[in-house]
Amino acid sequence: MESATLVRMANQIADFFVASGHDEAVNGIAGHIRSFWDPRMRRALYAHAEAGGEGLAQLVIDAIAALRLSDSKIPTS
């Protein structure tokens, strides 16, 4: 998946949750991505974050950290 697309989508999600304060926003972003994103999209997002996370909002970076904890057994296909 193209990183630019995923970054834009993730940042848009962050824009929605930003008003609810840091912790709630991080949970909201992580929950939304967990609920609606196909595993390959999540993997690609994690890979982008690992590669420096260019363009990602800080809330998304924080949410990815939270997500990865619960997403350790993400399917590969």
């Binding site: 998946m1 609920s35 609606f36 196909d38 595993p39 390959r40 399917p75």
Partner: peptide, 9 residues
């Protein structure tokens, strides 16, 4: 148990 791809995805 995992969500799939949406059309744009």
């Amino acid at each position: 148990s995992e969500p799939g791809l949406r059309i744009p995805n």
